[in-house]
Design a protein around this nucleic acid. Structure first.
Lengths: 227, 227
DNA sequence: ATTGAAACTTACTCGTGCGTAACCTTACGA
DNA sequence: TCGTAAGGTTACGCACGAGTAAGTTTCAAT
């Protein structure tokens, strides 16, 4: 039973926490980071609604009104978490990107970067992201992010296909991109739950699952439903 | 912008609702179904936490205590929704299954059945399912469901591979199954948001994206990361 | 006609937890 | 050494919405 279904029903009050932040006087910038660290942790463990501001405050070594003073309401705090984490992800990906590489290498780099990020933030990103995708006030923003990613991938796929002299209907491209994104999300969750899995290996698995197919598709091979 | 990011921020009080259930006296069995219909609708639109029992009651043509009397607490009600909808899904899939068919046909049937279901319940299943996957009390049950599906697919893949005389490490099989499931979820969301898309077409798109790759894999072709 | 149970209502209680008002205290530049 | 602002606290208001107690109407069977 190594599978902790996302918001891991962790009722243990504290257990072995990553050491509550220091209680002394600390400059704002630093304290804000501690608050965000705490918030990511708590939101991940409990889920947005079950997370409680007092716990986040306590974990960041401070009392509740400080959190409000620095980072605003619960919703704003959650969004701040989301933004910080996705900024980190984007930074990681940007570092890995290289438009001069051949298509499969680009995809490989992207996936590797993504899974390495997820692996490094095992119970931050995936959980936050998944929450945000369904929870009312955030879904809009996150849906936009996701759509942007899908669009980037769609364009890349289109580019790769044009290089091969092939062309595919827009919706088919979108479907491919969605497949890729959905598969990545699914494997990311898995990765987050499996501490021993190597991110690079996960990326390779996914490459194996989708690239071969894409490659076939580019050659014009396709599967047809029976009559 | 035709994309309504899951819980569609629908603040309009009622608008063109599928006609509130009749207010008169109605036998229990029937009323329960109306309640479930209403609940599915409201939970989908608002999300579990923002859904409010009075609205569900009103929509089902009855006052709140009736809902409690028939279907229990909010959580129990949500679970009841989930169970009804997944029972419907399973029924749909069971009808489509046929173990004597070749692997690709089986997969095709399964996907077709799944997407047809999603298409037919455009803002029931996907939304509920996604909520349930992240929301604290339900995630366990739904994670189990999902894992069961992944396992079934893993077994089928294994069977298909053995038929070809090939064998793959368990984790690789799991990864393939997760890819398939994740991709399906992703496309299901898309389908739910695109009223004009034909479910069969979506299934075909996914077959194209994954089957060709799987086929290659079965032949022993695989993608390797660069040094 | 009468009874009783099933269908349904109004009108509450009450916990929870976000958000804040009002108040300390330590650092440090003038 | 004093003023002030940044860092910090305690203690509370208050809305919201789940859940319920107590009662009313309708129907169907005897």
């Amino acid at each position: 039973m190594q599978n902790s279904p996302l918001p891991s029903g962790d009722d243990a009050p504290a257990a072995a926490r990553p050491a509550d932040a220091p209680r002394g006087r600390v400059p704002r910038a630093e304290r804000e980071q501690q608050m965000l660290d705490a918030a990511v942790l708590v939101f991940s463990r409990r889920g947005f609604h079950h997370a409680n501001m007092d716990e986040i405050a306590e974990l960041s070594g401070v009392s509740k009104p400080m959190v409000y003073a620095y980072l605003g309401t619960k919703e704003e705090l959650f969004i701040a978490c989301l933004r910080r984490e996705s900024a980190r992800l984007v930074a990681g990906l940007a570092a890995a990107a290289d438009p001069t590489l051949p298509p499969d290498q680009q995809l490989w780099r992207g996936l590797k970067g993504f899974f390495e990020f997820v692996g490094a933030h095992r119970d931050g990103w995936s959980v936050l992201y998944r929450q945000a995708r369904t929870q009312q006030p955030f879904s809009v923003e996150v849906a936009a992010m996701r759509e942007a990613v899908v669009e980037v991938i769609t364009d890349r796929l289109d580019g790769a296909l044009r290089l091969e002299g092939r062309q595919v209907k827009p919706d088919d491209l979108t479907a491919m991109a969605l497949t890729l994104v959905g598969a990545s999300e699914s494997l990311a969750d898995w990765l987050a739950d499996h501490p021993d899995e190597d991110p690079g290996r996960t990326a390779t698995r996914l490459m194996n699952a989708v690239w071969l197919g894409a490659d076939q598709l580019m050659r014009g091979v396709s599967w047809r439903p029976p009559a």
